[in-house]
Design a protein around this nucleic acid. Structure first.
Lengths: 222, 222
DNA sequence: TAGATTGTTAATCGATTAACAATC
DNA sequence: TAGATTGTTAATCGATTAACAATC
C-alpha cells in the first residue's frame, strides 16, 4: 500500500495551489526553495508545507530545501495531471459553454470529448470543435468512448437522471455545477461541487459583517 | 455587540446550503422540521445543525422543532440577502459573460450594474441589457454608482491593477475567478475565490485514488 | 403531566503549529 | 565541521459530535 493511502481533504485541496505557485517559481527561474520561503510567499506556515508534502513522501533535502522543478512535477503526478482522462459535458447553456471553452483554452490534461444538450435549438451547434449531441446519443457515445468524468451543467432538476445515466456507463467522477447533491444520492462517486450561488452568498455575508464592523469602530472609537 | 460577532468560517459556508434546503422544504409545503429530520435530509448530524444555528440565536422551539419558513427567512437575513448590493463585473470573456447571464437569470439580491472590458472588440457590445464599457470609464462609473462588489473575470496578470483601482473607490468585496491572490495582497478585503482549475485538479486526484482503489480490491479480494 | 426536541456544556476527534532530532 | 533545513513527533488549537438539562 502506498504512503498516500488516506490523505486528509484539507491537504488535497491545497495541492493545486502548491502546484500553481511552484509552476510560477519555475517560470521565473527559481530552482530551489525552502519551506520557509514558500510559506512566506503563499501565506502559510513552513510547518504546514512540510507536513503536507510529507504525506506523499520526502521530496526535500535536509539543509538545502526543495528543488522547484522536481517538486512541481511530483505534485503534478500526485494530482494525476500526467494521465489523460476523457470528459463529457452535459448542458450547453451559459456555464456549460463557458466551461467548454475554458477547458479547451487552458489545455489541462482533461480532454473534453463530448458535449450534450436536450434542447433541439442547441443540438447540432458547434462548440470548441465538437458537435453538440442530443441526450439520446449519450448512451452510445459513452459505450464507445468510455469517458471518466461527467461535467454537470444542466438545471438542478435534470441532474439525477443524467448522473444515473452516466453511472450506468462507469462514470464515477463528477464536476458538478448544479445544486443537486450527487455525493449524497450516489455513494461511491467522487464529486467536486462548484456552487456559484453559495459562494456568492458567503461573500454577501462577509461583506455585511465588514460593513457593520466599520460602522461600529466609527461609533466606538476606542 | 450582536451574538454573530465572530462566526467560524466552516459554519458560514454551511449557511447557503441550509438556506437552499429550507427553501426547498418550504416550497414542498413542509412547515415544521426537527434538527434530526433536517440532518438526515442533508447528510449532517442533528448536533451540528443545532450548534450552527445557535451561533446566531435560538430559532427553534424546544419539544417542537423549527418553523421552516421562519428559519429560512432568518438565515436569509443573516446572509444579507434582504439587502441590495451593486456589483461591477470586470472582464467579459467566457466566464465573465456566463456569470453575467447567470446573475441576471437567477435574480439574486446582487444587482449587476456595470460590465467592463479592455478589448476594443468587446467594448460597446450589449450583455444582459448593459453596454460593455472600457476600462477608462471605470473610475467615473464607480465614483457615481458606488458598487460594493467587484467580480474579477480578467486574466490573472490583470487582476492586481483592477483590484487596486476598485479599492480606490471603496470596493472591499471581491468575487474572484482569477488565480491572483487578492486576500494576500490586499488585507482588509473580503474575497471569495472560485478556482475552477483547482477544483478540477482535486477531482482528478480523487478520481485517480478511486481507480487505484478498485484495482487493489480486485487484486486482493479479501 | 409525559414526550419531544431544543440550547448548551462537555468529550472527542482532527488539523495546524511548534519543537527538535536527523542529516545533507 | 558548522549551518541550514528537512522529516517527524509532540503540543495546541479548533471543529464536530455526544450528552443532557432546560423547556415547550
Amino acid at each position: 500500500m502506498s504512503k498516500s493511502a488516506d490523505i486528509a481533504m484539507p491537504v488535497v485541496r491545497r495541492l493545486p495551489r502548491y502546484y500553481r505557485f511552484l509552476l510560477e517559481l519555475e517560470k521565473s527561474g527559481v530552482s530551489r526553495i525552502s519551506s520557509r520561503e514558500l510559506a512566506d510567499k503563499m501565506g502559510l506556515t513552513a510547518s504546514q508545507i512540510r507536513q503536507d508534502l510529507n504525506c506523499f513522501g520526502g521530496f526535500g533535502q535536509q539543509g538545502y530545501g526543495y528543488i522547484v522543478a522536481q517538486l512541481r512535477e511530483e505534485i503534478g503526478r500526485i494530482l494525476g495531471l500526467d494521465r489523460a482522462a476523457g470528459a463529457v459535458l452535459i448542458g450547453a447553456g451559459n456555464i456549460g459553454t463557458a466551461i467548454a471553452k475554458q477547458l479547451v483554452f487552458s489545455q489541462g490534461s482533461l480532454s473534453l470529448c463530448g458535449i450534450f444538450d436536450k434542447a433541439p435549438s442547441v443540438i447540432g451547434r458547434r462548440l470548441v470543435g465538437l458537435r453538440v449531441q442530443g441526450m439520446d446519443e449519450l448512451d452510445a457515445f459513452c459505450a464507445e468512448q468510455q469517458p471518466q468524468v461527467g461535467i454537470l451543467c444542466v438545471p438542478d432538476a435534470a441532474a439525477n437522471e443524467v448522473v444515473s445515466q452516466l453511472m450506468a456507463h462507469g462514470v464515477r467522477a463528477f464536476w458538478n455545477f448544479t445544486h443537486y447533491d450527487v455525493a449524497l444520492h450516489f455513494p461511491g462517486t467522487v464529486v467536486e461541487n462548484v456552487h456559484l450561488e453559495d459562494s456568492l452568498m458567503t461573500l454577501r455575508y462577509r461583506l455585511c459583517r465588514l460593513s457593520s464592523e466599520e460602522q461600529e469602530s466609527e461609533q466606538a472609537p476606542f
